[in-house]
């Protein structure tokens, strides 16, 4: 390892650093400054005024959205983790290596494939005259209103998070020492008990990180609550888009955004310390 700073080393390290400083750190830092600006006659003016914070935090609507968003994201995170676990467990332990590789290959595809259009397509299934109600109609049952409900929003969050959560869970499950599981079986430990007392504790870090990503993704998403949940009641991300696009209330939108970042940081920190708690003994 040579430690000198050379033209060569700077050629490779500097471009990304500069780019992320100028176009990632600065915009986020500017958001902090912006939250103290004032809006007069629909024009923003640089200032140092806590009015935006006071106004937003004084509104019960804001806190309702905050609670709702938190609850939805936590719900989505738990639901996705629970529904994804049997899938990743089965892929990790019940498939041949070749089939496992194929399954991973297939799970990566949707992660990079337009979430927006996939959510739109769910409308085809869930709308009043959609596929599911069409099937119900054929069996003579009454149609169910599914669109614009929390159920539909959850379907959207699942669409967003499920592939990523399966992949993250899978990577931690694949690295579990299999002799541990065999040892448990040899000691006549039941199937479910093995899962809860051997598999899940061994894969804890990966499982928590997966749940954390599901939380982050659904906490910031505005597509599912708008197009599947009907946009009412409002989540924080909807509040941001509305506040930004209607008029010049960007400073207030900045307050919401910063509150969201603070919440995400706190949750991420709590989750990571929970994941590593008691490790390294």
């Amino acid at each position: 390892m040579r430690k000198r700073i050379t033209l060569y080393s700077l050629t490779f390290s500097l471009p990304l650093l500069l780019w992320q400083l100028v176009f990632f750190v600065f915009p986020l830092a500017f958001l902090v400054a912006l939250s103290f600006w004032t809006v007069k006659n629909f024009r923003m003016e640089p200032a140092f005024d806590t009015i935006n914070w006071v106004t937003m935090y004084g509104r019960s609507v804001f806190w309702q959205s905050y609670g709702l968003t938190l609850a939805l994201a936590a719900g989505a995170s738990v639901l996705t983790s629970i529904l994804a676990f049997p899938c990743s467990f089965a892929i990790a332990f019940k498939l041949t290596p070749k089939m496992r590789q194929l399954a991973i290959f297939m799970m990566v595809i949707p992660f990079f494939t337009s979430y927006l259009v996939r959510v739109y397509s769910w409308q085809i299934f869930l709308s009043d005259n959609g596929i599911i109600n069409g099937l119900l109609g054929l069996t003579g049952l009454e149609p169910i209103g599914m669109l614009n409900t929390v159920f539909a929003t959850m379907i959207g969050y699942l669409t967003l998070c499920f592939p990523l959560v399966v992949l993250l869970q899978l990577f931690s499950l694949m690295f579990i020492d299999r002799t541990l599981i065999e040892a448990a079986h040899n000691l006549r430990c039941g199937r479910l008990r093995t899962v809860f007392e051997v598999v899940i504790p061994s894969a804890r870090v990966g499982l928590v990180v997966a749940a954390l990503f599901a939380f982050i993704l659904s906490f910031g998403d505005f597509v599912s609550p708008v197009y599947l949940g009907g946009g009412d009641p409002t989540t924080l991300s909807i509040l941001i888009t509305d506040t930004t696009k209607s008029g010049q209330q960007w400073p207030r939108a900045a307050v919401i955004a910063l509150t969201m970042i603070g919440t995400l940081l706190a949750v991420a920190f709590a989750a990571i310390s929970f994941a590593y708690k008691g490790r390294g003994k």
Binding site: P27, F30, L31, I216, T244, A254, A257
Partner: peptide, 17 residues
């Protein structure tokens, strides 16, 4: 880190900046 920041927040920050 950038992909972990919610896109609405990135969108707002980029627009303002």
């Amino acid at each position: 880190l950038p992909p972990t920041i919610p896109v609405v927040i990135m969108g707002l920050a980029m627009l303002a900046y």
